[in-house]
Nucleic acid binder design. Structure first.
Lengths: 140, 140
DNA sequence: AGTATTTTAATAATGATTTTCCGCAAATAT
DNA sequence: ATATTTGCGGAAAATCATTATTAAAATACT
């Protein structure tokens, strides 16, 4: 958490309460919130903050490598303060997005590089399904 | 190509020249065009057709299982008439999107299902990098 | 052929994200 | 300390992909 302070400063960005608050929301959740979810969560604490500020801050955090953008096929993006490359899974019923840790994916990049002669710079793995809770609800 | 004709009819959709044309564009390319690229390609042949028609036809084709939607992280979607589940790779310089056939991905779904208790219904693997042509250009 | 239904395509609407603009506060120079 | 510059937050407007609406045209069925 002090890390973001010095990182912002080093990159020439100012350290503001809004920026810290937005990062804090992302850092302490595993829910992969959208811009609007972040906005709604901060509304009570920062009643004057606008969505534009959320978007602008997200842009900065992405730029300095403190968050990654997830494109899980909804009409809006999700954000993750865990910048390690890891797969995600979305429940198509309740739209929750979960991490998939403990899954080995590193080997893929190599075989793709060999097969295509691309120079690989990134990868995103998304799974879709129905989460345990929604399965249960459906069996009611 | 006759397949789409009877499939449309069976599902209660009319068979129109525009729909066949849009599917034909998708079926004969491996470039994974966006709605706009399809529109531009058909413009000379169907000068009166609008982008809305492209979108609506895409919606229908998706519904009857003749195309899949790709979310490669651009601001618009790409479409692929190859509905087999296969990974894709996008060049971050020229934005071309290529297929990755010959890559084994099936095993993943099982291990994810075991690890999460999700019922898996789909998956999307995306790689990002620089294509051979753009690498060469860069070395100029 | 005549009528009912579906489709087309132009237009307008939507909604997430970006941009613009401006007063203000933090950082820097004097 | 004070003046000056620079970047920031926030409100509102702009953008742009996609979707909805609607009237006219095409098609199917009798």
């Amino acid at each position: 958490m002090e890390y973001i302070t010095s990182l912002l400063r080093d990159k020439g960005f100012k350290v503001t309460p809004q920026r810290l608050a937005i990062y804090k929301v992302l850092a302490r959740t595993k829910a992969h919130p959208s811009a609007e979810m972040i906005f709604n969560e901060l509304q009570p604490l920062y009643p004057t903050m606008s969505l534009a500020t959320v978007y602008k801050t997200i842009e900065i955090l992405k730029e300095i490598g403190l968050l990654q953008v997830l494109n899980v096929g909804e009409d809006s993006f999700r954000y993750d303060a865990n910048v390690e490359n890891h797969p995600h899974i979305r429940c198509m019923v309740c739209n929750r997005v979960d991490d998939l840790d403990n899954i080995e994916t590193a080997g893929f990049a190599d075989s793709v590089a060999k097969l295509t002669s691309y120079r690989i710079t990134g990868q995103q793995f998304y799974f879709y399904g129905i989460c345990p809770a929604c399965q249960k609800k459906n069996d009611k």
